[in-house]
Design a protein around this nucleic acid. Sequence first.
DNA 1: AGGATTTCTTGACGATCGTCCAAAGCCCTC
DNA 2: GAGGGCTTTGGACGATCGTCAAGAAATCCT
Lengths: 233, 233
Amino acid sequence: MTSTNDTSTTASGSTATGSTATGSTATGSTATADRIARRQVDKFSERRRQLADAALLTLSELGYARTSLREIAKDSGFSHGVLHYYFRDKVDLITYCVRQYKAHCVERYDGIVATVDDPEVLLAGVADALAGTLAQDTLMHRLWYDLRTQALFEESFRADVAEIDGSLERMIWRTVEAYAGLVGRTPSCDPSFAYATVDGLFHQALLRHLTGSSDALDGLRAGVRRQLPTLVG
Amino acid sequence: MTSTNDTSTTASGSTATGSTATGSTATGSTATADRIARRQVDKFSERRRQLADAALLTLSELGYARTSLREIAKDSGFSHGVLHYYFRDKVDLITYCVRQYKAHCVERYDGIVATVDDPEVLLAGVADALAGTLAQDTLMHRLWYDLRTQALFEESFRADVAEIDGSLERMIWRTVEAYAGLVGRTPSCDPSFAYATVDGLFHQALLRHLTGSSDALDGLRAGVRRQLPTLVG
DNA sequence: AGGATTTCTTGACGATCGTCCAAAGCCCTC
DNA sequence: GAGGGCTTTGGACGATCGTCAAGAAATCCT
């Protein structure tokens, strides 16, 4: 039926949002056709993003195992049939959701490593930032661990999940490098070791925070402030 | 119909297996009735355990989200209807499975902390033991992380999952205490901190091991040997 | 304005799910 | 070996799942 449907799954890195592309091309006819095509593509991908947002909301509340396409559609305000107009199937939708979650993630995490000159201030800032996002985006973090676990069973998700995991590891590593620089030393461990231990602390804190433990946030802060200095030397 | 079905969910700690109870009671008639009742209960709980074993096998292969009662029954060699004779519903079955998994876990982990007098030997032994169970019981560990995540969405599992988590934390803590004793110091952190960081290392190693990374086991060994000494002082 | 195209709704399909139940099979006791 | 309770079977039920297609509704272009 349509030609726009072909852009559903293949393109992985093409967000195609920031470039509103007001630059006019050569001839008038091709420019018009281009504009039409771009407008359609923009509307198409915009609706995809909107639906993926609703799906992320539903997923974060119910979890992967209990989320159905009809429930996602209900939360989005559209009918359930529209999902197959914008996504090939359920795997395509959730894969797109994972990618969108990644964008939301790195955007939020990039502002964490503050530009400070005191190592203690950096430690406190990182600990507070991690505790802050844990308290504020609790359900999204729960969804992340859920999807990461599902990727161990569903091979379709592994690539995207691994990419997100890598970006998180790099984020932690930037923190370690910044701290090492402030104390005049160099990191003494792998990026993977730093990420594994800090992620373990974060994972446990999320678990406790979700089960109502009031000291989960303080425990995370204390844990991060204790663990980070052991990673340099 | 039957009275034995009432023992399905309520009793949490009653394994009722070790006590074959050859001790004769008072009168002959009550002894006979007792023996009959015990035999039935034993057969009943034995079949429950057998079915739970099959369920654990299926769960570890497919994951919680994709495991159906019919698939479990197929792997067990019985028909799908028998599951509702031994378990009230799906939640009851999986809860029982989690408890059985816990027994399997602590039994295996209890032999890890070897009785050695050299701290370096202890470190190497613990690292090897963790890497060994990760390589040998890979799918079971994957299932554990899956169920622990599901417990964040399904409240029915939380109690049992928290109990297993606590026993794992205590196991790690015993290791930390043993190491601290061998080096003539005392632990300098919470049990929860020790568990969170080591579990983070184990979780990451499992992830890499499952995705085919050949250095996952060595990375876990190196990580454990690096992290444990930082926990005492 | 009106035809073409995109977007969305609605209902249906087959498959599979958890659950239940009547009947058959089994094994033990007398 | 006949009777009776415990086990097991296999089919059926309603619900829900992902998917699809036909048509209504909305939007766009000339």
